[in-house]
Design a protein around this nucleic acid. Structure first.
Lengths: 258, 258
DNA sequence: TGAATAGTGTCTTTAAGACAGTATATC
DNA sequence: GATATACTGTCTTAAAGACACTATTCA
């Protein structure tokens, strides 16, 4: 629930958007055994927020989620997954806004019943991407937009901490039934790399031998006849995804009960 | 997305409700090996709809779902489960309304941009109840409200068939991980009864011996020293739920991979 | 040759799935 | 005793989980 739309549209008009519904994206980023979330610090708050926004009258909620994600990451083929909606009259609280800053932005005196302080039901989406390659673009009304390690999140506005918790729960459930990694790993990757990926997302260690057995058994991996040189150590073999089987797994599920 | 609120409130004022968000309840009913859905035929359509409604500015989306479910079933302790939200600009289509009837109801000429024809994002909830004991109450603006067998649904308005399909998918996934039956079976029930319940909901047959083994293994059942007389047949034993373990299972899940 | 990482195999336990004959209640 | 339903047990197979040693790279 933020004013991301202002960014590319200087003639922002609330009437072009749905009232009382918004989208919040929980964008998880993975890199080098670390899981982060993309958060922004709007000028109108002194707390961080998810990258969210309003829904245009001409677009679906999924399109809105993609547009908002694109506006921050420049990525337009993210696998955005709806996981829950959040609706409580008190979730958006008037007094968490910095009214002085709001007034300056609006160029007028904001009253307590201004549309932006209204009760918004937020539809939550999450996604997962490789964050080291993403060029984060802050919105015109944000001070900063950056990746925060999942275990060291700053103080968040409204119920955004709760939304992140729920998104992480959904993500962790999701990866027991569907393959992940295609957007997160280089085209050719090693088993230790994908092993670390799963461990990081699940937040627990997985026996490497059993992990390998199960992952191979899904049939989504193709072992290559190349190795990666990693210094004074044995060189691990490279693998790539069998894209057809990976896609198939995304649809009908894959047995990986972690 | 219907005008259920009119029912108990003759002074219905759209300003008391959120714009552009609604709730749709998929109320599944079970009785005697049959699964049904509660649908209503509003005066303003010639197609059937889910029992849905708008969200008051003073209530959470969950409270709205409960209020709406109560208004049709008289039940107020339903286990309503949010499963997805639906938002497409075209999902509510103006020309599926019977304008003549709408005008008569409103007492004025409805224009194409009236609030009720607007783009509504609908938050979907489902629940499951024993339908033979429910006294269905139709809304003041409905012609009928009744249970339809899941396999013989009438023609539904908007995307309501799709919402039902998604709800059923969620329900079937749900019962592989969580116990069901407490609200659906009499306090004392037999194994063949709960077996039929699972078969009906899943829409497939389950080997009785394996089913029993797994269900007993969950520990949520208590075998009683009584039997039920069912005529010229062997009398099955009665069971009841171990409520504490059942509740526990609702929280942390139960292994029942069907 | 030592340090760090990659790779591999077996055993045990548990669960899933297929399958058929005996027991009981009433007419 | 005929009929309809309830009840029970075993075998096979597959998957999960625990566990420890060998192989490779290069400084």
């Amino acid at each position: 629930m933020v004013i991301a739309e202002f960014d590319n549209d200087s003639t922002f008009n609330p009437d072009d958007f749905l009232r009382n519904v918004s989208v919040d994206n929980v964008i998880f980023g993975y890199h080098d055994k670390e899981l982060r979330v993309l958060l922004q610090l709007p000028l109108t708050f002194d707390k961080w927020t998810l990258t969210g926004g309003y829904i245009k009258r001409t677009e679906t909620i999924e399109e809105a989620a993609h547009r908002i994600a694109y506006s921050r990451t420049g990525l337009n083929n993210l696998f955005l997954q709806q996981f829950r909606s959040f609706g409580t009259p008190t979730r958006i609280s008037y007094n968490q806004f910095d009214l002085e800053k709001v007034n300056k932005l609006i160029g007028a005196e904001a009253t307590a019943n201004a549309w932006m302080f209204d009760y918004f039901v937020s539809v939550g989406f999450y996604t997962l991407t490789e964050f080291s390659l993403v060029e984060v673009k802050k919105g015109g009304y944000d001070e900063v937009c950056k990746w925060w390690p999942i275990n060291e999140l700053p103080s968040l506005i409204f119920d955004h901490q709760h939304i992140i918790d729920e998104a992480l729960r959904a993500l962790r459930m999701h990866i027991s039934f569907f393959p992940i990694g295609y957007e997160l790993l280089p085209e050719k990757f090693t088993l230790p790399e994908i092993h670390s990926l799963y461990e990081t997302i699940l937040g627990k260690s997985l026996d490497y031998r059993n992990f390998q057995k199960r992952l191979i058994a899904t049939g989504i991996l193709i072992k290559l006849n190349e190795t990666r040189s990693i210094g004074a150590h044995r060189s691990p073999f490279l693998y790539k995804f069998d894209v057809a089987k990976y896609e198939e797994g995304l649809k009908s599920g894959v047995a990986l009960a972690f």
